[in-house]
Nucleic acid binder design. Structure first.
Lengths: 357, 357
DNA sequence: CTGAAAGCGCTAACAG
DNA sequence: CTGTTAGCGCTTTCAG
């Protein structure tokens, strides 16, 4: 009745190996500074007892948690209509795993959720945070700043340098740099449009994404880079959804019946556009060529015809975000170091040719 | 140089409020048993100092973590082609949030990952685990059993009662019951097939899912319940993917050109089947009616024609899993209670009529 | 190179 | 009802 079934402690291992707790601790944490015969005895004891360190006890003294929060702030459930986050999560997970860090997932949907996330981050439960899908008016950056947690953003944050939130955020000593990872949205868009031009298309339309997100703005900018003097009616604002793509495509066709190509802000939008084109009896790519963005296989490979699109390596984005964060953590605040951590890392995109253009 | 910027402790709050640590602790944790004027003083001090409890210190003594692991064990990246998990995660997240519990996400891809997960679970870092997408030969149940962590499975686990893993798992004192949440796959399949029969279809084919998952097996059983004496050539094994659906549909058409309906194991598969049907010049639903399973909107609403399908409430599944787990935890091992927790909870499905059947 | 001792911040008896 | 007192299991000086 003395022995409970609870897990063995350092003490138990020490007793079994005939050494002190300190020695066991040393062996367990890298083992430097313990002579081999002893170390081996300890390892054996650990093995035999099935000892696993108590993370809570460890955190209490080290102030480290080996855990990173992943914050996905998306008010609309729409997000989950595409496998975007799943892919990023996978990338993040791989990298964190390699560093023995845990992934704490924080999903938010409304204002009160934001407060909760702020509190959690401020609570010092994690070593850092990876934050996604900020919109222009997002209160999260402010909360994060106040929480003082090392953070890497997924996608270029929306506030420009003179926006209220930005100054607020960037001026903090603890966040001397806003670190983010993004795809080369502008460059990718440029390549897509240039490709259409190269195909001999001249009346090229653009269906934008939700313009409260930088990815949509950047893709629009890329479009404009190439089509500087385009008829403004060739640009229709939309929202990244298939239904939005349909609406926009109709609008576009009504405005400019002589249209011969469309660059859609993402694959989902393109799929909607494709449907409308078919419905109107227009052939793709013969009458109208279509290019998307993302290369979301479950969409791009399934449309009819399969979609030519700009691929971004989503999983790699996730992996890189995690790597950047962990490097900063290991480097003991290296973000503020000489030369500084990169303010933003932009991953290249590649054009994937299929049948739609 | 004395004051570091570290977060305030209970001690600090106690000092400021002029009470003892114990009193502050009481107020912070529910506040019962502290007289109002004092309690208010404490709350104010907490507010002023921006005190947030140190979870590590708390866990160390309470042995609770207010954290639940969500294990998604899917070797193939395929999973992430559909928004399934995202939806479940959302449901889980909502429920955990309501209980102030954190969600620790564990993604696994290979054998070594399993070991890692086992170690983590055994490490006592979380209060319980939610485990998804087990396959028949999955080593995870064994690991979980050994870890002795309260667990709820998503989807009926694959091992039948006399399978090696099952006995292994179920016989443990700590896991007297295998708790899981699932959709009524069999009933839903039955309803789908009956509906086709009601439409006057007589040559009804079935494209199965990956038969190493119970959901696929159960849907097949449901099909058979209604089509007991069906031509065996009308059943083609597949794998839940669109490409698999295409292959299976071709096979089906080759074997039975007189086919007049198809029940596909999921929407993705159905979308592939639909493509082949169109490619062969068969009209849907006139020549061949098609019914899917899942009601994954991003698929079912986007196919041509839109898919009639069996809806399962995925988010609710997630929510329910979390609720079951938390209830068990609160009930202090209530799973073993008189009458016992439900062995399995099966959620109803509903047939959603669109244009394909 | 190893052991002894001092907490990390909190909760939970136990007194008062 | 409130304060005092022990630790939870671990890392980390500091001696030896």
């Amino acid at each position: 009745m003395t022995e409970t079934a609870s897990r063995p402690t350092l003490e138990a291992v020490a007793a079994r190996a005939g050494v002190s707790r300190a020695t066991v601790s040393r062996v367990v944490n890298g083992g430097d500074g313990v002579r081999e015969p002893l170390a081996e005895r300890v390892r054996q004891a650990v093995e035999e007892l099935g000892y696993v360190p108590n993370q809570a006890a460890r955190s209490l003294v080290t102030k480290r948690h080996d855990a990173v929060a992943v914050v996905i702030a998306e008010p609309e459930p729409r997000v989950f209509a595409d496998p975007f986050f799943a892919r990023q999560l996978r990338g993040i997970s791989k990298e964190l795993t390699a560093h023995d860090s845990q992934l704490v997932l924080l999903l938010t949907e409304g204002r009160d959720d934001h407060a909760r996330v702020g509190r959690y981050l401020a609570g010092g439960h994690v070593d850092g945070a990876l934050v996604f899908s900020l919109h222009l008016d997002d209160p999260l950056p402010g909360l994060i700043r106040r929480a003082g947690v090392p953070t890497v953003f997924g996608g270029r944050p929306g506030w420009s340098d003179d926006a209220p939130g930005a100054a607020d955020f960037a001026r903090t000593a603890q966040n001397p740099e806003v670190v983010y990872v993004d795809s080369d949205n502008r460059g990718g868009a440029r390549e897509a449009v240039r490709y259409l031009v190269g195909l001999g298309r001249t009346r090229i339309g653009h269906i934008t994404g939700a313009l409260d997100q930088t990815s949509a703005v950047d893709r629009l900018d890329g479009f404009r880079d190439v089509m500087a003097d385009a008829d403004p009616r060739l640009i229709v604002e939309s929202d990244f959804t298939p239904a939005g793509g349909e609406r926009a495509m109709r609008e576009l066709l009504d405005r400019c019946p002589d249209l011969d190509a469309v660059f859609a802000a993402n694959d989902l939008t393109a799929s909607g556009a494709l449907r409308v084109l078919r419905e109107r009896g227009l052939r793709v790519p013969d009458d109208v060529a279509v290019v998307g963005f993302d290369d979301m296989l479950s969409v791009a490979e399934q449309t009819e015809p399969p979609l030519t699109t700009v691929r971004q390596d989503i999983e790699e984005m996730g992996r890189l975000m995690a790597r950047l964060l962990l490097r900063g953590l290991d480097g003991h605040g290296a973000e503020a170091g000489a030369g500084g951590a990169p303010r933003g890392v932009v991953l290249p995109t590649t054009l994937v040719r299929r049948a739609s253009a």
